[in-house]
């Protein structure tokens, strides 16, 4: 087991890019390698040691034996854990854009908030965010029609707009509320939102499942009631309470299911 701890010591308003500092690439680096390394900032590269104190303990045979601790505010560090396939990353603070984007395995935990595009096009592994995420969590690349395809994202706070657009697999759990168009264009996968949702979940959805345990502000006309179920079992999980099940989006001949907590959404009954 190898523990790599990076403690920030200087702030750069131009974001640092950490796509090269993932367990897959650094598992065999020693301290000198880190000290030699220059991190991309804007159109240049600067020594990593200008920005971080580096500590390394233990050794690793492969990325799965690496634990990286980014010990502080990473609010201007983009692409943390981008494309990683194994190992653990712990961020003790906020994370900037694209945390966990395109990851295929391993785990990332952010003890703070995450900026937009967290878990974009995720293909595996797990991403846990203790705070809120901004827009486009678990989405596709712009113009791509396949978004997150596997893996798990857990958000303990709230999620922003267009959560998981074009999702084609995997699971997303949001404990808090969620803004417009969660699961838009989704074709497969599971989204569970614990809190309230502003408007229009699952617009243009073709398939997959969205569960909303809180109150929904506005539902689209493209959804038709299929029935009301008590303690339904959805996606292999037993939910408690009454749920209204909708099918849609009719506009795209969708066969997706949208489950709304009946108690909280009595106006729709």
């Amino acid at each position: 087991m190898k523990t790599i701890t990076l403690t920030p010591k200087k702030f750069s308003s131009i974001a640092l890019e950490f796509d090269e500092l993932i367990p897959d690439k650094v598992y065999d680096w020693n301290k000198e390698d880190f000290e030699k390394y220059e991190v991309p900032i804007g159109n240049s590269r600067f020594p990593l040691t200008d920005y971080f104190d580096i500590e390394i303990e233990g050794s690793a045979e492969g990325p799965e034996e690496v634990k990286m601790i980014l010990d502080g505010d990473m609010g201007r560090v983009k692409y943390i854990g981008c494309k990683m396939s194994a190992g653990d990353i712990l961020v003790n603070g906020d994370a900037d854009l694209q945390v966990g984007a395109e990851m295929t395995g391993g785990s990332i935990k952010v003890n703070g908030n995450a900026e937009s595009y967290a878990g974009r096009e995720m293909k595996g592994g797990s991403l846990e965010i203790m705070g809120n995420v901004r827009e486009y969590c678990g989405t596709s690349y712009i113009g791509e029609w396949r978004g997150m395809s596997d893996g798990i994202i857990k958000v303990h706070g709230n999620a922003g707009k267009q959560l998981a657009d074009c999702m084609s697999g995997g699971e997303i759990y949001v404990d808090g509320g969620c803004d417009i168009l969660a699961g838009i264009h989704m074709t497969k996968g599971y989204i569970e939102i614990g809190g309230d949702v502003t408007r229009w979940p699952a617009g243009q959805m073709k398939n997959g499942t969205v569960v909303i345990k809180g109150k929904l502000g506005r539902l689209l006309e493209g959804f038709e009631v299929e029935g009301i179920y008590k303690n339904p079992e959805i996606h292999g999980k037993q939910l408690t309470g009454k749920y209204i099940k909708y099918k849609g989006d009719i506009g795209v001949n969708g066969k997706g299911s949208l489950w709304l907590n009946a108690e909280k959404n009595r106006d729709l009954l």
């Binding site: 168009l181 408007r199 229009w200 617009g203 506005r218 006309e221 493209g222 009719i250 506009g251």
Partner: peptide, 13 residues
């Protein structure tokens, strides 16, 4: 806007 167009599409279907 989104809701309005969504409704037209539902009518078309």
């Amino acid at each position: 806007d989104y809701e309005f167009v969504n409704a037209i599409r539902a009518v078309l279907k």
